[in-house]
Lab assay of single mutants.
Amino acid sequence: KLETFPLDVLVNTAAEDLPRGVDPSRKENHLSDEDFKAVFGMTRSAFANLPLWKQQNLKKEKGLF
């Protein structure tokens, strides 16, 4: 399991300012399950079932792209 970080560490943070080991294209993977659901309004599995373009739009909207 990946290390999780608080939302404010990941949202609207440039790649070079992210904690070590965080993939800038997969910031959402480093949210706790609770934060993930609070941000996206759905579970990880529901998010994973969305088309890629919709996932990317949601990530942009939430500052996690």
Results as ranks from 00 to 15, higher is better:
Lys1Arg: 06
Lys1Gln: 04
Leu2Thr: 15
Leu2Pro: 13
Leu2Asp: 15
Leu2Arg: 15
Thr4Gln: 07
Phe5Asp: 14
Pro6Tyr: 02
Pro6Thr: 13
Pro6Glu: 14
Leu7Arg: 06
Asp8Pro: 06
Asp8Cys: 04
Asp8Lys: 11
Val9Asn: 11
Leu10Glu: 08
Leu10Cys: 01
Val11Gln: 14
Val11Arg: 10
Asn12Pro: 03
Thr13Val: 11
Ala14Asn: 07
Ala14Leu: 12
Ala14Ile: 08
Ala15Asp: 15
Asp17Glu: 11
Asp17Pro: 05
Leu18Pro: 04
Leu18Cys: 09
Pro19Ile: 02
Pro19Ser: 03
Pro19Ala: 04
Arg20Ala: 15
Arg20Gly: 13
Gly21Glu: 09
Gly21Asn: 11
Val22Leu: 07
Asp23Ile: 09
Asp23Leu: 05
Pro24Asn: 06
Ser25Trp: 11
Ser25Gln: 08
Ser25His: 08
Ser25Phe: 11
Arg26Asp: 06
Lys27Phe: 06
Glu28Trp: 02
Glu28Leu: 03
Leu31Met: 09
Leu31Trp: 00
Leu31Lys: 00
Asp33Asn: 05
Glu34Thr: 15
Asp35Ser: 04
Phe36Val: 02
Lys37His: 14
Lys37Gln: 13
Ala38Phe: 12
Ala38Tyr: 02
Met42Asn: 00
Met42Asp: 02
Met42Arg: 03
Met42Trp: 00
Thr43Asp: 14
Thr43Lys: 12
Arg44Lys: 14
Arg44Leu: 02
Ala46Thr: 13
Phe47Ser: 01
Ala48Met: 11
Ala48Ile: 09
Asn49Trp: 01
Leu50Met: 14
Pro51Cys: 01
Pro51Met: 03
Leu52Gly: 13
Trp53Leu: 11
Lys54Tyr: 08
Lys54His: 08
Lys54Val: 10
Lys54Trp: 07
Gln55Tyr: 01
Gln55Phe: 00
Gln55Ala: 04
Asn57Leu: 13
Leu58Ser: 01
Leu58Gly: 00
Leu58Tyr: 06
Lys59Ala: 03
Lys60Pro: 00
Lys60Gln: 11
Lys60Glu: 14
Lys60His: 13
Lys60Cys: 09
Lys60Ile: 08
Glu61Lys: 11
Glu61Tyr: 01
Lys62Tyr: 06
Lys62Arg: 10
Leu64Arg: 04
Leu64Ser: 04
Phe65His: 15
